[in-house]
Design a protein around this nucleic acid. Structure first.
Lengths: 255, 255
DNA sequence: CGCAAGGTTGACTGCAGTCAATAACCGTGG
DNA sequence: CCACGGTTATTGACTGCAGTCAACCTTGCG
């Protein structure tokens, strides 16, 4: 839900909870937890990037997301992890027992609310991704991906954004529902259109954000919410679009 | 999280909460709430089917899901509804204030847990859908869709399943990231393969479930969980697949 | 430097989208 | 009850985007 201000006993925030724990670290290619393992722990990423993926029955890999510094993993699972979390870069993280976290949450509405927000954000991200995968062309997907990653680091105020994109082209492809070759070709198109440029394989610069956003099929963008967490979710704007729908659910564009 | 047994004061379940409220109803094409409206209410569907969708900047419609009897909508939003919920059939439902629900939840770990489960299930469903949209062919998508809808009604024990599929082909298409024509062609293929048959446009029979599941690219299927709510989520099985991944995240099928 | 992993580009193919014509269905009214 | 009209569904012909296969290039590490 939204906005719970209540506190019970001493307030304890999710981030604090984790920083009170020891820090572990792992290296590129190592997993923090595996798809199918009993989900006993939750994890907060202090530094680095992970890929989150499943292996499908046919052996394909589906990357369902990436995790970055500040993200908390492992909250919303049922009894088993539904994906593997594997380091892309060096990663520092802390672990906290799910059991204990659940118990603490049942005593602290504030914490409860924070956990709820984490899951609600994940859900928003997943639905955004559903739309990307269901509706967008390859170039729109790649543009969206670059934009989202750029905006995670800075706000949307600057004209130009420069950042690191540590995952491989294959990671991007498996995340965007494309092949590695199509990702490359789309990147090339974006380079040719002078919307982005690369220094090496993993250092990106986004020029002309507004154009890139339009190209990506995103709404507006410059709405620029508070510099709170990652919240590129809005999208649900007033929506004065010229359509109407008749009694049976068919959509008609009026013009 | 999972399995909270604790109770605080008098236990009150989510379903009960709603059944204590008046029942509203709406007709095909009418919306219960609209994308972008302030999210003040939560809703439990007692009967009927709704389509949940967004309108994208370019005017396209993306169906993010369907809601059925027993489902609860409107829990995980931020301050605004992120999609429109529109009746496909006649729908009976109850409304409950989000504000009040939040307050009750902060006092009842049991209710809190129920809400958490609802959102966690939504997240599971969304990630399942991400995989469908990112990895599956048109025929696999349609087969998955039929199977999922069939299994919602019955378990997976029967050899044959017969059920109503009230949404239009366009709804399915917008949900599966396909066109209406491709949905039709896929249905035709499935009919020709004798895996399904139709009586009229909305009455489906699934024959040979196991084959259909294999065709849909689903794992096993006959695992047959408890006849609890809808829980087709498992998928995270032991996974003894013959692969290994080297230090940089590239997957190698060993054979 | 040399090699291997990762990335890019090109040629070709095929699946799903588009446009268009036809058929089935359903509610309404004669 | 049947006939009619509008909506929804199906099929066909053709196109085009993204996938496949293959060659080549870059980069970074031992």
């Amino acid at each position: 839900m939204s906005f719970s201000v209540a506190t019970t006993g001493r307030m304890e925030s999710l981030a604090e909870l984790f920083t009170s724990r020891a820090t572990d670290s792992c290296h590129p290619g190592q997993a923090i937890f595996w798809e199918g393992d009993p989900a006993t722990g939750t994890f907060r990423i202090h530094e680095g990037v992970l890929r989150l993926y499943r292996i499908l029955p046919d052996g394909c890999r589906a990357v369902t997301g990436f995790a970055f510094a500040g993200d908390v993993l492992g909250i919303a699972f049922h009894d088993r992890y539904s994906y593997t979390a594997e380091a892309v870069t060096n990663v520092r993280y802390s672990r906290f027992s799910r059991e204990r976290l659940r118990k603490l949450a049942s005593e602290s509405p504030a914490l409860q609310h924070e956990l709820f927000e984490v899951v609600a954000d994940e859900l928003s991200a997943a639905q955004e991704q559903m739309i990307l995968l269901g509706q967008k062309s390859s170039e729109e997907r790649v543009a969206s991906f670059l934009l989202k990653n750029g905006l995670r680091v800075y706000g949307s105020d600057k004209k130009t954004i420069d950042f690191e994109l540590p995952m491989t082209r294959l990671d991007m492809a498996d995340y965007l529902g494309l092949t590695i070759e199509t990702v490359c070709r789309s990147l090339t198109k974006l380079k040719q259109a002078k919307l982005v440029s690369f220094r090496g394989r993993h250092r990106v610069t986004l020029h002309k954000l507004a154009e890139l956003a339009r190209f990506a099929g995103e709404e507006e963008l410059e709405i620029l919410r508070d510099p709170d967490h990652h919240d590129p979710v809005v999208r649900s704007e007033p929506m004065p679009l010229p359509f109407q729908n008749d009694k049976s659910g068919r959509m008609h564009l009026v013009i």
